[in-house]
Simulated assay, not measured.
Amino acid sequence: MSVTMYNLTVPVFSRGLTVLSTLLTKAEAHAAETGVSVESLVSARLVEDMLPLSGQIQRVSDTAKNTVGRLMTIAAPSFPDTEATFAELKARVEKTLAFLQTITAQDLEGSDTRDISVKFGKLELTLSGSDYVLKFAIPNFFFHVTTAYDILRAQGVPVGKADYLGAYS
């Protein structure tokens, strides 16, 4: 099997989002078992100048759907960043997964050579589709998945490496 733009994006993002949903389920159970407030977990940060857990999950969602949208030159669905509960965060993850499930390999054919322009803070980039996915989108996606994991771990949620890696079936 050759590696296609579809293989590099939709299954990778879907897997990461599924892992994130599982982490949220564990965090919700931890809050219920320990009496830790959901609000404190959802608003927890690693350090003051980083986004809270909710912001990390919003960026994971945005990166997945906007990457595919840019590659296809379509407007990806837009979700307001208003989630304040585990149920709302998990619903956002599910909506993102549902969008990804509508994408086919044919939808992404030829996107490897398409110019993709993005603004990231003051940085403006124009990369080929394949460079955009490999050098920006995937690293950005996993930065936020990892940071969400780290926030939960720092807050005492009992998650480990196997939870981060997820199931392989």
Rank of each mutant, 00 (worst) to 15 (best):
D131N: 08
S117A: 11
A167R: 10
F86S: 13
T126D: 04
E39N: 04
Y6H: 11
F99G: 01
A64C: 12
R114T: 12
I74A: 15
V42D: 10
D112F: 00
T67W: 01
I57F: 09
F143C: 09
V145C: 05
K65E: 01
A64Q: 04
M72N: 11
V47W: 14
P11Y: 08
G160W: 13
L23I: 01
V133R: 00
T126S: 08
N66L: 05
F79W: 10
R70D: 12
T4K: 00
D131G: 01
G69W: 13
E109H: 02
D150E: 14
D163A: 08
V12M: 02
K135L: 10
T147H: 00
A137M: 07
E83I: 15
L24H: 06
A154P: 10
L53W: 11
P77R: 09
V36N: 04
I151W: 10
T147D: 03
T67V: 04
L125T: 00
L89N: 06
K122N: 13
S14L: 15
Y6I: 05
L123A: 14
D81P: 13
I57R: 02
R45M: 11
L123C: 06
G16H: 13
S169T: 13
M5R: 02
G69F: 10
T147S: 00
V68L: 03
R92H: 12
G160F: 11
V68G: 08
Y6G: 02
D150R: 07
A148C: 00
F13C: 03
V118D: 01
E124Y: 10
T34I: 00
S130L: 05
T104N: 05
A64T: 05
G55K: 11
L108A: 03
V19H: 06
A44N: 01
Q58Y: 15
A32H: 11
K161G: 01
T104I: 14
V42W: 10
E48L: 03
A84T: 15
D112P: 04
Y149V: 03
R153W: 12
Y6L: 09
P139A: 10
R114N: 11
A154M: 09
Y132I: 00
T126Y: 05
F142Y: 15
R59T: 07
E83V: 06
A167F: 05
E48K: 02
L51K: 09
G35W: 00
T102A: 13
L165H: 00
Q56F: 06
A29S: 12
L20I: 14
V36W: 03
T85F: 13
M5I: 04
V133E: 04
D112L: 07
P80I: 09
V3T: 08
L108C: 00
L46V: 14
T126E: 05
D163E: 05
A64G: 03
I151N: 04
S54H: 07
L134G: 08
M50L: 15
I74T: 14
T104S: 15
M5T: 07
T147V: 03
V157Y: 00
S21Y: 14
Q56M: 06
Y132W: 02
L51H: 13
S61W: 00
L8G: 08
A44F: 03
Y164E: 12
S78A: 14
N140A: 03
I116N: 02
N7W: 02
